[in-house]
């Protein structure tokens, strides 16, 4: 049994297909990331898993329970950390946790112990009895995570866990997520931060306009692009780069592919992931009588993966920033 199984999920609001033919599994114990821009269908997918939305078509099971026919069983195994501000500013941190503990039917002694544990986990023990009104953004998020952990869930679902947080808080939240994974928890998170997905997730699914564009570990997705990239710029004038390109492909085994710029003075070479490729590459180019103006070596990023599979950048609309 997988932690979460989604089979052919489709969700329609009115005429609009928000999620289409989504099929994916989340393994037990992994951190799985749903990656995509706003409107990609991440939140809809999450809400369906949380039983807050019913699928239009398809099947979703969580820890073996069907979200449509056994919603209460599903809710019992999930902890949820909503996107933002899902706190009541007139309650203290501890009062939030007591409320959530009651909603998951913990007994008094159970609740008391659990609350101390989660407060310690997110370093909020000192501030637990202050009104949330006086909390910083990072502290509210910590409280959100603490609330999500109260039921001692099998799967923790985090919707954009670091949206709008400062750098320090982000790094701390990442640290909690790693610690929770080590304790055996399965984690499903959405994000539109590529670095976050790269840092945290064992596997990611790239969603674009409601469809699954790619899925795999960040490493394998990056490797799937054909290796590291060497960009070489040449001087102005006629460089006859096509001839050079053919020669390089023929003579160097580690060259996986070459793309030429239309202006005939730049080439982008994909090489098997190895920085030692640079030296022989430069030599070869010199042997063929070309003068290198500048050279840049870069490993593929998740951004490259995203662009390759969706045809656009993740943050084209400035509303995301």
């Amino acid at each position: 049994m997988k932690a979460i199984e989604i089979h052919n999920l489709k969700k329609t609001f009115g005429e609009k297909n928000v999620v289409e033919n989504l099929t994916l599994d989340v393994e037990k114990g992994e951190v799985f990331g749903l990656l995509g821009p706003n409107g990609a269908g991440k939140t809809t997918t999450i809400r369906t898993i949380l039983t807050l939305l019913k699928p239009t078509e398809g099947q979703v099971t969580v820890w073996g329970h069907d979200v449509v026919t056994q919603p209460r069983d599903v809710r019992q195994v999930l902890g949820y950390v909503p996107q933002e501000k899902a706190v009541d500013r007139f309650l203290t941190g501890r009062e939030h946790l007591i409320l959530v503990a009651d909603l998951y039917h913990l007994t008094r002694p159970e609740a008391k112990k659990r609350i101390e544990d989660v407060l310690a986990l997110v370093d909020l023990s000192q501030k637990a009895d202050e009104l949330v009104n006086h909390y910083s953004g990072g502290m509210k998020k910590k409280l959100d995570i603490a609330c999500g952990m109260i039921p001692n869930p099998k799967i923790l679902v985090l919707d954009e866990p670091t949206l709008g947080l400062d750098v320090e808080s982000r790094i701390r939240i990442w640290d909690y997520i790693r610690r929770l994974q080590k304790s055996g928890l399965t984690i499903l998170m959405t994000t539109n931060y590529l670095d976050e997905a790269d840092q945290l997730c064992d596997r990611i699914a790239i969603l674009d306009r409601g469809r699954l564009a790619a899925m795999g570990s960040p490493e394998s997705l990056k490797k799937g692009l054909g290796g590291d990239r060497v960009t070489v710029r040449f001087g102005p004038g006629r460089n006859r780069l096509e001839e050079l390109s053919d020669a390089l492909k023929k003579e160097l085994a580690f060259v996986n592919g070459i793309k030429l710029s239309p202006a005939d003075h730049e080439m982008e070479i994909r090489v098997a992931s190895n920085e030692e490729a640079i030296s022989p590459l430069i030599q070869k180019i010199h042997q063929h009588g070309h003068l290198i103006l500048a050279i840049q070596y870069s490993r593929p990023t998740l951004e490259d993966v995203f662009i390759t599979y969706t045809g656009h950048k993740i943050k084209e609309d400035s509303a995301l920033l």
Partner: peptide, 13 residues
């Protein structure tokens, strides 16, 4: 509007 309801509804209540 704040999303707090969502937290309540995601609990097995």
């Amino acid at each position: 509007e704040s999303g707090f309801l969502e937290r309540l509804l995601s609990a097995p209540i």
